[in-house]
């Protein structure tokens, strides 16, 4: 049985302080929740890497190659010469290539975002509505017997209140 503990903070520096202390005490499952993107989180919780950029690159390359092939192959599968131009001319097909590059690049970035941010997640997760308003929160998942310790650390760092939530 594990426990989910949320600490609510009024001030952002208190939150980062608490996160630092929790990290130092050996808790790994730490999530910070805030109404705005916080700066300096990486300093406290360690640098983040995301696969997002790979998704974007991959999507753009697939889009580019696929777009050109779509235009070129569709032109040779049913040959309809126009205007004395080649069947596979560069300038128009590069425009098509460019557009599909952007299109698939964007879509892949979107998928990458969902994938790497664990969204969409429509089930209930540890959260308090105040975090979209003006409060900052830290969520720690830990063993039942370590719960007391976590709560203490949170309160020491200046938490307004500490809550235990299910799931």
């Amino acid at each position: 049985m594990s426990a989910n503990i949320i600490g609510v903070y009024q001030y952002a520096d208190d939150l980062l302080d608490a996160a630092g202390r929790l990290k130092a005490s050996g808790f790994d499952e730490i999530e910070l929740m805030s109404p705005i993107p916080l700066h300096g989180v990486e300093k406290v919780l360690g640098p983040k890497k995301s696969v997002l950029r790979r998704f974007a690159l991959f999507g753009a390359i697939v889009g580019g190659v696929g777009g050109f092939l779509m235009a070129a192959l569709s032109a040779i599968v049913f040959i309809l010469p126009t205007s004395g131009r080649p069947i596979v001319p560069w300038p128009p097909f590069l425009i098509i290539t460019f557009e599909t590059t952007i299109l698939l690049g964007t879509l892949a970035t979107l998928i990458g975002f969902f994938f790497s941010a664990n969204l969409p997640a429509w089930k209930d997760r540890p959260y308090l509505p105040a975090f979209s308003d003006n409060r900052f929160g830290v969520h720690v998942g830990c063993d039942e017997d370590a719960a007391e310790k976590v709560e203490k650390i949170m309160l020491d760092a200046g938490a307004e209140k500490v809550e235990r939530v299910k799931t």
Binding site: L73, A75, I76, P81, G84, P86, I87, V88
Partner: peptide, 16 residues
């Protein structure tokens, strides 16, 4: 795709 590359000069011929 093979057709596209092997007959490249045909597809690039002006007016086809």
């Amino acid at each position: 795709i093979k057709d596209l590359f092997t007959n490249w000069s045909v597809w690039r011929r002006p007016g086809y």
